[in-house]
Each structure stands twice: as C-alpha cells, then as structure tokens.
C-alpha cells in the first residue's frame, strides 16, 4: 500500500492567516474572500522534477558559491536535515532553494536600505536537491538580524528563507528557518503571525554540537515537512488520480 491518494487538507489554522496587521504589508495583500475549496485534481497532484544534473558543485555552499577573494565573513555553519511528508516519509528529489542576509544582516539587493556592509564574497543564495531518503545539507555563514520598515523599530531575527518543491504543485511551500536560542524570534510580527507556539517551534533549527566540525563549523538541524497523501483505502478513483 502506498500513499497515492489526494493530499491531506491543509490546516489553515496552523499557518499564519493572510491578514496579520502587525505585519503591515499583509494589510493590502491579503485576500478577503473565502478560498474556493477544491479537491485535488491532476493539475495539482503532479509537479515538475528537478534532476541533480541542474546542480553545480558549489550550489549548496554559500561560503564558496560567490567567493571572489576569499571566504565570506561570519560564523561558519552547516544546516542539515530531511524533507519529510506528513506521513513521516522522506521526500526524495525535493528542490530546496535558500537565501539569506550576510553576517551583518545585509542582503545583496538594490532595494535594500540597511547601512550594514555588503560582503564581496557572499552572494546569499544557494540550492540543493534531497537524496533518496529526503536528506539535504548546506554550508553558509550565520546571517545577522536586520532592521526593516514595518513598525518604527522592527528587527527580524536571524533567519534563512527556504523554498521547497516536493512532488506535487499542491505541496509548494516557502518558509523561514530560525536559530535556537534567539530571543528576537518571539518579538517578530512575521513569526508571531503564526497562531500556535508549537508551530513556530517547528521552524527553529536545533544547535547540534555533535555534528559540528571542530575548528570549522557549527551545525544546525532543520527538518521540513510537506503535505502528505492519503492512502487509497477502498477508494475507487478515476484513472489518473
């Protein structure tokens, strides 16, 4: 028996609602009508495949993939984990893309307003594809917190953005990874838009001293869960579903 059915209904109470007024940009960008409920069709249960062939040697190494004159400045870290589905199965071949600020909290973007310095050796993006067990890893420098135009004096906790592509368009997800022990997580209106503290904690990567590399890099473990599929018990669905 395999999980071939439709995806479990997304728990909208676990995700942040569209309208989170303390995160001001959401006010004019949040749909106000009810979403139209739609059982999965082939259009959402399928999705593209990204072969390992698209990856370059340093794509998952932000310490090396933009280096011009040497290594970027900042605490060296490894982030590793698994992409799982809600049934606990590893999701193989998942495309992960990640982007972040440099150690000073500065993004390499022309609209960035923060005065912190750019790092000539840090681009701030990378990507990888999970192995047959759903495992991934990346190497980077720990991003700094940064101020942002929201309330008068808001700062984001240190974070890495993740975009995840599983096996189906219905699983498409973008989220952010935070760091264990950071008090600013609980002051951030973007984080606090998530209604359930337990949900927020699933986005906080654990410091893993055992997998840290002595005199080289600290390790953080960050698992990501995508939507899972129903088992097709006694279901007689039309061909193709």
């Amino acid at each position: 028996m395999t999980d071939q059915g439709s995806f479990y209904q997304r728990d909208r109470g676990w995700h942040p609602p569209p309208f989170t007024p303390h995160y001001k940009t959401s006010v004019l960008r949040s749909p106000q009508r009810a979403l139209l409920s739609l059982e999965n069709t082939i259009s959402e249960m399928t999705g593209p495949v990204f072969g390992h062939g698209v990856l370059g040697e340093y794509d998952n190494d932000l310490i090396r993939n933009w280096a011009k004159t040497g290594d970027p400045v900042g605490p060296r870290i490894i982030v590793y984990g698994r992409v799982l589905d809600e049934n606990g199965h590893g999701v193989s071949g998942a495309l992960l893309e990640f982007w972040q600020a440099n150690a000073g909290g500065r993004y390499r973007h022309k609209k960035e307003l923060y005065v912190a310095a750019l790092d000539p050796n840090f681009g701030g993006c990378g990507r990888t594809i999970t192995d047959d067990q759903g495992r991934y890893c990346l190497r980077t420098i720990k991003p700094g917190p940064y101020p942002w135009p929201n309330r008068v004096n808001d700062w984001r906790p240190a974070h890495i953005h993740f975009s995840i592509f599983g096996h189906a368009f219905a699983q498409r997800l973008i989220t952010q990874m935070y760091f264990e022990g950071d008090p600013m997580i609980w002051q951030c209106p973007i984080v606090m838009g998530i209604p359930d503290r337990n949900a927020i904690e699933t986005l906080v990567a654990a410091l893993d001293r055992e997998n840290s590399i002595h005199m080289d890099a600290l390790a953080y473990k960050f698992d990501i869960v995508l939507r899972g599929r129903r088992s097709t018990l006694f279901e007689n669905r039309t061909e193709g579903n």
């Binding site: 479990y8 997304r10 728990d11 676990w14 995700h15 942040p16 995160y23 959401s26 799982l84 589905d85 809600e86 049934n87 606990g88 973007h109 609209k111 953005h161 975009s163 997800l173 973008i174 989220t175 952010q176 973007i190 984080v191 998530i194 949900a199 927020i200 699933t202 986005l203 990501i224 869960v225 995508l226 939507r227 899972g228």
Partner: peptide, 12 residues
Amino acid sequence: RLKESPSQTAGP
C-alpha cells in the same frame, strides 16, 4: 502524523 511546516512570507 507530522504537521506541515508553517508557511512564512517569501519576503522582499
């Protein structure tokens, strides 16, 4: 069963 990772904005 696990819970889906909560979504966060894609940001600027």
